[in-house]
Amino acid sequence: MNVTFTLNGRLRNVNIEPGDYLVDTLRQLGLRSVRRGCDSSSCGVCTILVDNKPVPSCTTLTARMDNKTVTTVEGIPKEASLLADEFGKQGADQCGFCNPGIALSAYALKLNHPNADETMIRHFMVGHLCRCTGYVSQTTALKAYLEGKR
């Protein structure tokens, strides 16, 4: 079947099998920032934005993307770079496998709740498992990113 959606600002028409998951479709399209940490919406690694809302792509059918807007971290290089600077300042980046997913959730948070406080950040990020950092450095970095501090 064919699906048409906007991917990182570009209209794409892709030929897929009805049962294909978005994470696989996007990887096949060369967007390799989208990676799999599980297959049950339980780790947050595969997070992408659909109409600016964070969604786990490992359990989202590509077939449902018709007429939607899909964003991966490749589509928000400026925001990802800003967040990376804050992560760098806190040492909040270790293996990095969780990072692109976090960047997209952080961007969504900035769009929808720019004044989020620490409690809200924690709440919003609860679906992003990180086995490396222990979270505190990440939360500090996310706060700085939202505050737009340089």
């Binding site: 990376a84 760098g88 040492g91």
Partner: peptide, 19 residues
């Protein structure tokens, strides 16, 4: 406190991991 040399590229989604 030097930031990691590779964190930014990974955050930005560049090819990095085995797959």
């Amino acid at each position: 406190q030097t930031p990691s040399v590779d964190g930014k590229g990974i955050m930005m989604g560049r090819d990095a991991y085995s797959d």
